[in-house]
Amino acid sequence: MIVRKLSAAGFVAMALAFGAASAQQPQPAKGPDAAQAPAAPPTTAQAKALIDEKFKAADANHDGKLSREEAEAGMPEVYKRFDKIDARKRGYVTQRQIGAYWQSKTKAQMQNENPVWN
């Protein structure tokens, strides 16, 4: 194995070359015609906070449950799947039931997309 020593000038030149190359990263376009980067999906905590906020707004009588009518008015995605979420056919859904339903759907989707890792 041959070991070569860099002179001080060679080391400085190499450092400047790599530093300049890494510093020149493309800058995002600015202005009204610039394409917007897609937003990152919300974190679990953000998603829970959003669902909590929407649930409280939709729960008109503040009983901690959404009737079919409350879901239709305030949470249309829950309304579309109301019968699946209300598996016990009680006529209402709770925030916990909604969370469990979406978690199972997400898990099933992940399993379908990549069965080896899930």
Score class of each variant (00 low, 15 high):
W117D: 14
G74C: 02
I85C: 03
T106H: 14
Q109P: 07
M75H: 04
K89V: 06
K30R: 12
D63T: 07
S22W: 13
M14R: 15
A13L: 15
P115K: 06
V93S: 00
K105Y: 09
A45G: 05
Q46N: 05
A17E: 12
Q103C: 07
L66E: 04
P28Q: 03
Q97T: 13
S7M: 11
A17M: 12
A23W: 09
R88H: 12
R90I: 01
Q25Y: 07
I2T: 13
Y92Q: 07
A87P: 03
L6A: 14
F55D: 00
A13I: 07
Q111F: 10
A34W: 05
E70Y: 04
F82H: 03
Q95Y: 03
V93Q: 03
G99N: 13
T44Y: 08
A8G: 11
D52P: 00
R68E: 09
A108E: 14
Q24C: 09
Q111S: 12
P41I: 04
A57E: 07
F82I: 02
R90M: 08
D52F: 07
R90K: 12
R96G: 01
R96H: 08
P76I: 02
T43A: 04
G91M: 04
A60N: 06
A58P: 02
E77A: 07
K80W: 06
R68Q: 11
Q97C: 13
K105G: 09
S7R: 10
A29E: 12
A45V: 05
Q24H: 09
A58R: 01
A58E: 01
E113I: 11
D83W: 02
V116C: 12
Q111I: 03
F18L: 11
S104L: 12
Q95D: 05
V78C: 01
R96S: 06
S104N: 15
Y101T: 03
I98L: 10
K65V: 02
A37K: 14
A60D: 07
F18Q: 10
A21W: 14
A58Q: 01
G74M: 02
S7P: 07
D59C: 02
G31E: 04
T43C: 00
E70K: 02
A45F: 03
G91F: 05
Q111H: 09
R88Y: 08
F18W: 11
K56W: 08
G74F: 00
R81S: 09
V12T: 15
G74N: 00
A8W: 08
N114L: 08
A87E: 14
A60L: 07
Q46V: 01
A20P: 02
P38Y: 13
T106S: 14
G19C: 05
D83R: 03
V93H: 05
P42M: 10
A29R: 08
